[in-house]
Design a protein around this nucleic acid. Sequence first.
DNA 1: CTAGTTGCAAAGAGTTTGCATGGCG
DNA 2: CGCCATGCAAACTCTTTGCAACTAG
Lengths: 136, 136
Amino acid sequence: MAKYSTRQRKALALFLSEHPDESFSAVQIASALEPERISLSAVYRNLGELVSQGVICRTQQDNSREILYRYTQAESCRMHLHLACSRCGKTFHMDVPGTDRLIEQVAENADFRVDRSSTVLHGVCGNCMQSAGDSS
Amino acid sequence: MAKYSTRQRKALALFLSEHPDESFSAVQIASALEPERISLSAVYRNLGELVSQGVICRTQQDNSREILYRYTQAESCRMHLHLACSRCGKTFHMDVPGTDRLIEQVAENADFRVDRSSTVLHGVCGNCMQSAGDSS
DNA sequence: CTAGTTGCAAAGAGTTTGCATGGCG
DNA sequence: CGCCATGCAAACTCTTTGCAACTAG
């Protein structure tokens, strides 16, 4: 797999690596790369490859059946958990002290090895809380 | 909504409440309830209702585009985060001290309100780690 | 009896695949 | 030039919806 370096392949990899904190759907990527003229199927096929290479990871929003893709190659991305706002869909790094300790505790207490790169905590980000005046 | 109590509705609610720790797809539920003769559309419609009533919640497995449903009404379910094994698909309670503190820290440090009932940490459970001899 | 529910089948949304054409090396 | 990758369209999978028939209250 991935023997040739095509215009489409390069554009896709570049785009994702330039947005390490964001998750995109295949359609979003295709339209962002419209100037590069990539077909949706090429996007899907190349995303699949990148996923199996571990360069990016798949996630999903809770009430959509879209699959989202996020660059995880960057050191900084693999070490953090991520936070996803269920209102605006943005993804954030979770740079919170004590996270590692909790993950260790989970391993000891619950006999479960958490995979940092694929787990995403859901909730509402500050921006959305504010703009919605929501305090429930 | 939900003004009448039908055979299908009762069977669905009963089934879910009897399996508070497991996640099911609509198809799984429909076939588990086959003796009760529920159509897939009735399953979907009733699941939708239960979700908006907060009785159950939707989640998704990472590499499938199926939506999964899990009973969350039980007090014990709403207070915990959950762990999902990406090998066997089972869901577990996350009964780990320090979890609440971390969630508070996230609110303060990252200005993000984590929604306990919808977030699921992904990883590998003890059983699967053992049977796969995986230690990566 | 009346309105909420069901079941079926058709429509949607998102993703995957077959096959001929095109482009990298 | 050979083989991989692309593009298009058709096939698929899962979910939603329209509508007539059914049934709980």
